[in-house]
Design a protein around this nucleic acid. Structure first.
Length: 791
DNA sequence: CTAAACTGGAAACCGAGCTC
DNA sequence: GAGCTCGGTTTCCAGTTTAG
C-alpha cells in the first residue's frame, strides 16, 4: 500500500482495530493536470480494491481534502474544505466510528461492488457463455485452468525467462490467436514443473482445447483482458490476480461447485427444478476470526488441525496462514535469512493441516487454496527456484482425503481420525438429510454406533457434525464450528436434547451469535449462524450446575462495512451451562434482553401467558388456508379442491391489505374470494374465519411493532396470516380487543424482540406459538382471582 | 434495490387410542 | 397410567417471488 511502485503510494493509513480503513495520500505526489491526477488516484483505488483493503482514500492538499471511494469507481470524489461543516464531520474520526459517513453514500460501501462480487459474477457469465459450445463441466474446467495460470503469471511465478526456457508463450497471446497446440504445450509443461494436484489431468483435458469454437477463445480472452462480460463495459476496476486475496479465487471454485450441484439436481427427477446454488465460501474475515478463537492460548505450531468438511478449505487456509505467521515469528530472533523458506512451509503444511470432504472437487479446491497460501509472499530466492523448476508442490493426497475416506461419518474415517487432532475447525454443510438417501444412511449408522442416543434435530447434518467432531479430538482438543443458530436458540425439545448431547461431549467455552451481522458476512445468505468454541470432555460430569460459558452477541455496527469484525465488551455475558438445556430458551432471550428485561419477564410470566386464553378460556389459534399443496403423501384429490360454499360466499382478506395504522379491519379491505381451487380445507379452519378474533400477518417488524388487528366479520385469509380466535361472547370480544391493543403496544414490540427468534435473528415474523408464550393476564381471570397483585 | 408476501414440503409436534 | 404407535396438524426452511 505504501509502495508507490512508480505511482501513488499512501503516506499514512488509518486503522480501526488494526484493519486498514482510510488511506491518506499526499497530493504533492500527484503529477500533471487535474485529469492526470484523478487517473493516478483511480489507479491507486483500483489496487486497493483488488486487495479488498481500505474503503476510503483521502487526498490531502494545502487547502482542501478530496475523498474517494475505493469500492465504487463511479462515485464522484467529494471535496472537503475547511469550512465544510457537515461533510468535514462525516469524514472525521468520530464520523467514521459513528457511521455518519454511511449516510447518502450507500454505493461507497456497497458489498456487491466489492471485488469478490464482481469477479464471481464475471466467472458465472463466462461459464454460461462457454457452456453453449462445450459441456458445462468442461467450461468450468477451462475457466479454472485459465484462472490458475493467470494467477501464476500475475504473481510472476511464470516469467518471460520461464517461457523462453520452456519455449511457450503467454496465455493471453495463445488465447487471442486460438493456438491450440501452444495451449496444450503450456499446460503440459506447467503440469510437469509444478505438480499441483489441482492441475489434474484426466483424459478429457488432453482434447479439451481442440473442440473449442473460435468465439470461446474470444470469450476467454475478453475475460483475461478484464472486460465486464455482462455489460461489455469497462466501468469497473480491473482485477489483478496477483493482488486478489486467495479466498476469493477459492470462491470462484465454490461457485463452480454450486453450479455443478444445480446441474445435477436438474438432471435428476426434478419436478421442482429450481434449487438455490449456494456459493457460501467462508469469508476471510470470519475464517481468520474463527482460527484466532480456535488457537487462542495455545501454541499454534503444536497443533494438528483438522476440518471434517473442508469444502473450499477456507478455514484450513486461514489456519495455515496463521501457522506460517507463527513460524516466522518464532524463527525471526535467531536468523532472518531462510527461516520461512519453501521447504519449511511444506513440512508445516504436511504435518499440521488435515482435512476431508465427501466431494472430490472440494478436496481439490482445498489443496488449491493451500497451494496459493504456500506460494504467497515467498522469499525471492524460493521464487527463483520455483521458476527454475527446482521446487515442486508437495502432494496433499494424504492430508486432504476424499471419497472412501472423505465421508466423515463412515467407519473408515472414524478409524483414521479417532483422537488424532488437537483442533477441529469447520463450517460443516447445513442441510436436512433426506430419509432413504445413502448419505443419510451413513450418518444414521454412525448414530447407531454411539453408546447413548444422539439427537440431530430435523436431520440437520450440521448437528451430527458438531457431535461427531468430539471423537476425532485428542483429550482436551478444541472444536471451533460455524453452526445454524436454530440449534442453540430454539426451544423445541429435540434441539434441547441435542444441546444436552453437546454438553455431555464438550465443555463449551464460548458461543458467539452472529445473527445480526450475517448479511454483511455472507452477502447472499439469509440464515443466521453461531460460532461455538468448546473443548472435548475427558469424561462425563454429573454436576453441570457450576459450569459456565461465555455468550457473545455482537451487533452490526459500522465496523463491518469497513471490513472489521469487532465485538464490544457490552455484548458479552456469562451463562450457566444448564441454560442450554432449560425449557426457557435463554440464548434467545439474552440476545437482545438485559438481565433486567429477563427479570421483569419472569415476573410477568407468573401471572399467566397468552396461552392461558387457549388453555382456560376457549380460545383457538390457527393460520389461514394453504393455496397449493404438493405434499405427495396427501392423496391427490385432497390437494386441490374447489373452495367450499362457505369460502365462496364470504369475503377474503389479502395479507397485504391488513391495515398498519388501524387496529381493526375495515370492510373496504375485503374482497370477493379470488381462487378457483385451493389446497385441503379442513373443517376446523372455518373457526379461524369468523367471530371475534385477532389476526396478524407474517411481516411483523420490530420497528413498526406488531401489525395485529381485531376482526369480527366473517372472512377468510391465507396461510401467511395468523389468528387467535376468541369465544363468541361479550367477554371474548372485549378480551380480543384488549389483546389487539396489547400486541400493538410498545410492550408488544419489546416482547417480540425478546421472545421471537424470528424477529431477533431471522426475517421478521411472529409465529403463533411465540405469541402464545407472551406473558399475559387474561381479563377474564381477574374475576377468578382473589388477590391480583402483580408487583 | 429492499421488504414482505407467499410457497412447497418434510420433519417435528401432539393428541388419540392402543397395549401392557 | 406410562409408554408406545399412528396420523393429522403445525412449523419452519444456507426457501422464492413479487411489489413498489
Amino acid at each position: 500500500m505504501f509502495d508507490a511502485a512508480g505511482d501513488v503510494g499512501a503516506s499514512a493509513v488509518l486503522c480501526i482495530d488494526r484493519v486498514p480503513t482510510v488511506c491518506l495520500v499526499d497530493s504533492a505526489q500527484l503529477k500533471g493536470d487535474e485529469n492526470a491526477q484523478a487517473n493516478q488516484i483511480r489507479r491507486f483505488c483500483e489496487r486497493l480494491w483488488n486487495q479488498n483493503l481500505a474503503r476510503i482514500v483521502l487526498v490531502a492538499a494545502d487547502d482542501y481534502v478530496d475523498a474517494w471511494s475505493v469500492d465504487d469507481p463511479q462515485a464522484p470524489r467529494e471535496r472537503i474544505v475547511a469550512e465544510g461543516g457537515e461533510k468535514l464531520a462525516d469524514f472525521s474520526f468520530q464520523g467514521l466510528l459513528s457511521g455518519e459517513i454511511l449516510k447518502n453514500r450507500a454505493t461507497w460501501f456497497d458489498p456487491h461492488k466489492r471485488v469478490d462480487k464482481t469477479l464471481l459474477d464475471n466467472v458465472r457469465v463466462l461459464v454460461e457463455r462457454l457452456s453453449g459450445a462445450v459441456t458445462a463441466n468442461i467450461a468450468r474446467e477451462l475457466t479454472a485452468s485459465v484462472i490458475f495460470v493467470a494467477y501464476l503469471e500475475d504473481r510472476e511465478i511464470i516469467t518471460d525467462a520461464y517461457r523462453a526456457s520452456r519455449n511457450v508463450s503467454t496465455l493471453i497471446e495463445l488465447l487471442e490467436k486460438g493456438d491450440v497446440s501452444g495451449l496444450e504445450r503450456l499446460f503440459g509443461q506447467l503440469q510437469k514443473d509444478f505438480n499441483g494436484d489441482f492441475l489434474a489431468t484426466d483424459g478429457r483435458k488432453e482434447g479439451m482445447w481442440r473442440g473449442l469454437p473460435s468465439n470461446a477463445f474470444e470469450d476467454l480472452h475478453q475475460f483475461l483482458r478484464r472486460t465486464v462480460l455482462r455489460s461489455g463495459q469497462t466501468a469497473f476496476w480491473r482485477y489483478n490476480f496477483a493482488q486478489i486475496p486467495i479466498e476469493l479465487i477459492a470462491g470462484i471454485y465454490e461457485t463452480f461447485l454450486g453450479q455443478k450441484a444445480a446441474a445435477e439436481t436438474e438432471a435428476g427427477e426434478s419436478a421442482t427444478g429450481k434449487r438455490k446454488q449456494g456459493a457460501y465460501y467462508t469469508p476471510r474475515l470470519l475464517s481468520d476470526w474463527v482460527v484466532e478463537q480456535a488457537l487462542a492460548g495455545r501454541n499454534p505450531l503444536e497443533q494438528r488441525i483438522f476440518d471434517g468438511a473442508c469444502g473450499s478449505g477456507m478455514l484450513l487456509t486461514a489456519a495455515f496462514r496463521r501457522l506460517m505467521r507463527a513460524q516466522r515469528a518464532a524463527a525471526l530472533p535467531k536468523d532472518d535469512d531462510n527461516n520461512h523458506d519453501f521447504a519449511a512451509r511444506c513440512s508445516l503444511l504436511l504435518g499440521h493441516i488435515f482435512g476431508s470432504d465427501i466431494d472430490e472437487d472440494a478436496c481439490r479446491l482445498t489443496a488449491f487454496s493451500l497451494y496459493l497460501a504456500l506460494l504467497s509472499d515467498l522469499a525471492p530466492r524460493d521464487l527463483e527456484l520455483l521458476r527454475k523448476g527446482g521446487h515442486k508442490l508437495p502432494s496433499l493426497k494424504k492430508n486432504i482425503r476424499s471419497n472412501g475416506h472423505g465421508n466423515f461419518f463412515s467407519q473408515k474415517s472414524e478409524a483414521i481420525n479417532r483422537e488424532q487432532y488437537t483442533v477441529f475447525l469447520s463450517n460443516p454443510p447445513w442441510r436436512e438429510m433426506p430419509p432413504g438417501d445413502p448419505e443419510t444412511a451413513v450418518v444414521e449408522a454412525w448414530a447407531e454406533r454411539q453408546p447413548a442416543t444422539v439427537h440431530w434435530p430435523k436431520r440437520q447434518i450440521a448437528a451430527a457434525f458438531a457431535l461427531a467432531a468430539a471423537e476425532s479430538l485428542s483429550a482436551s482438543g478444541r472444536v471451533a464450528m460455524i453452526l445454524p443458530i436454530g440449534l442453540f436458540i430454539s426451544a423445541e425439545p429435540s434441539t434441547r436434547r441435542f444441546r444436552a448431547n453437546l454438553l455431555s461431549r464438550y465443555k463449551i467455552k464460548r458461543i458467539t451469535n452472529f445473527a445480526d451481522m450475517r448479511r454483511l458476512i455472507f452477502v447472499d445468505a439469509d440464515h443466521p449462524f453461531v460460532v461455538m468454541i468448546a473443548t472435548r470432555r475427558a469424561e462425563a460430569v454429573d454436576d453441570l450446575s457450576v459450569e459456565q460459558f461465555e455468550y457473545w452477541t455482537p451487533k452490526t455496527d459500522i465496523a463491518l462495512a469497513f471490513g472489521r469484525l469487532t465485538l464490544h465488551g457490552a455484548d458479552r455475558t456469562i451463562m450457566r451451562a444448564t441454560a442450554l438445556i432449560d425449557e426457557t430458551p435463554h440464548l434467545r432471550l439474552r440476545y437482545w434482553g438485559t438481565l433486567q428485561d429477563l427479570a421483569l419477564l419472569e415476573r410477568l410470566w407468573q401471572f399467566g401467558s397468552v396461552n392461558d386464553l387457549r388453555a382456560r378460556f376457549g380460545w383457538e389459534k390457527g393460520k389461514g388456508f394453504h393455496r397449493v399443496d404438493n405434499d405427495r403423501r396427501v392423496p391427490q384429490h385432497l390437494r386441490s379442491v374447489s373452495p367450499s360454499r362457505w369460502l365462496l360466499t364470504h369475503k377474503f382478506l389479502k395479507a397485504e391489505r391488513i391495515p398498519g395504522d388501524l387496529p381493526i379491519v375495515d370492510r373496504l379491505c375485503l374482497e370477493r374470494f379470488p381462487y378457483e381451487r385451493i389446497a385441503r380445507e379442513p373443517d376446523e379452519l372455518r373457526r379461524n374465519f369468523k367471530g371475534p378474533r385477532v389476526i396478524w400477518p407474517d411481516g411483523t417488524h420490530p420497528e413498526n411493532g406488531v401489525k395485529a388487528v381485531f376482526a369480527e366479520d366473517p372472512f377468510s385469509f391465507q396461510h401467511s396470516v395468523g389468528v387467535l380466535s376468541a369465544p363468541d361472547t361479550e367477554t371474548g370480544r372485549l378480551e380480543a380487543r384488549f389483546l389487539t391493543a396489547y400486541m400493538r403496544s410498545s410492550m408488544g414490540t419489546w416482547l417480540s424482540l425478546l421472545l421471537s427468534p424470528s424477529v431477533a435473528a431471522e426475517r421478521p415474523k411472529l409465529h403463533v406459538n411465540e405469541l402464545l408464550s407472551w406473558p399475559y393476564w387474561p381479563v377474564a381471570s381477574i374475576h377468578n382471582r382473589k388477590k391480583p397483585k402483580p408487583f
